[in-house]
């Protein structure tokens, strides 16, 4: 799922300090799981903002809410009255949710309340790790199920580089070398011969390099009535 962390409170206060009626909008999706933008975090942020405004002697009205997913129009629609009643919205959904909320309520000022980082897993309580870089062309079948794009610091397709040492990446002793992991896994699977054949340059068009991406799945799209009569 998408991993985010709360922005420093000082930064959020700085965004909203000149507004009176503020809506803190959380999301029950990914950001709830990583405890950055769910109901609990919305309540904490709302409370903190009220404390700030009160001690600063400013009139204010801070309300908190969440929706099932801020990346869906149908759920964002539920916010209509609350958004209209607010001068500014702090969205603590991921960057997608924040933008979609902005798109939907275009005349409202919307601030981000979290920093969105990556797609990852919950390794342990409070530990989130990146696993997929969303390159749009999965190579896991040939790399033992470990992604070199997301887990090698140099996105190499022909690793490990000369900086791999004792299973760690050259950038830090806390970072496992992705290619070391791939090697161990391929060795287990008896596929070490994969290391003898060069892997050709990757087509990055399916990654962010091709510009903002859109997926159109005709099989999933709304069925439009055909022109003409089916009975003719």
């Amino acid at each position: 799922m998408i991993k985010a962390t709360p922005k420093p409170l000082e930064e959020i206060i700085n965004y909203v300090k000149d507004f009176n009626k503020i809506l803190v909008a959380g999301c029950d999706g990914c950001v709830t799981v990583c405890e950055a933008g769910g109901m609990k975090e919305a309540k904490v942020l709302g409370s903190a903002l009220r404390l700030y405004f009160t001690q600063a002697g400013k009139d204010h009205e801070v309300v908190e809410t969440t929706v099932t997913r801020q990346c869906d129009k149908e759920y964002l629609a539920e916010l209509k009255d609350m958004v209209e009643n607010a001068d500014a919205v702090v969205s603590i959904a991921c960057g997608c949710g924040i933008q979609y909320l902005t798109e939907m309520y275009n005349d409202k000022i919307v601030f981000p309340g979290v920093d969105t980082h990556f797609m990852g897993i919950n390794a342990d309580r409070g530990i989130f790790e990146e696993r997929c870089a969303g390159c749009g062309q999965c190579v896991l079948a040939s790399t033992g199920g470990i992604c070199p794009i997301a887990r090698c610091s140099k996105r190499m397709l022909n690793g490990p580089c000369g900086g791999s040492e004792a299973g760690k990446c050259e950038i830090s002793k806390d970072t496992p070398c992705g290619w070391h992991l791939i090697y161990e896994r391929l060795e287990k699977l008896g596929q070490v011969d994969r290391f003898t054949q060069p892997v050709d340059p990757k087509n990055w068009r399916t990654s962010r390099d091709g510009g903002p991406r859109v997926i159109i799945r005709e099989d999933l799209r709304k069925a439009e009535p055909q022109h003409g009569s089916a009975h003719s």
Partner: peptide, 28 residues
Amino acid sequence: LTGDHQTFGDHPMSANVFDLDSVQLIQT
């Protein structure tokens, strides 16, 4: 070469490229 990661250098805040790796540069 692929090159050292920019973390080591004087511009650790820079974006890296790594469009190709060393093996693919050889191929090129």
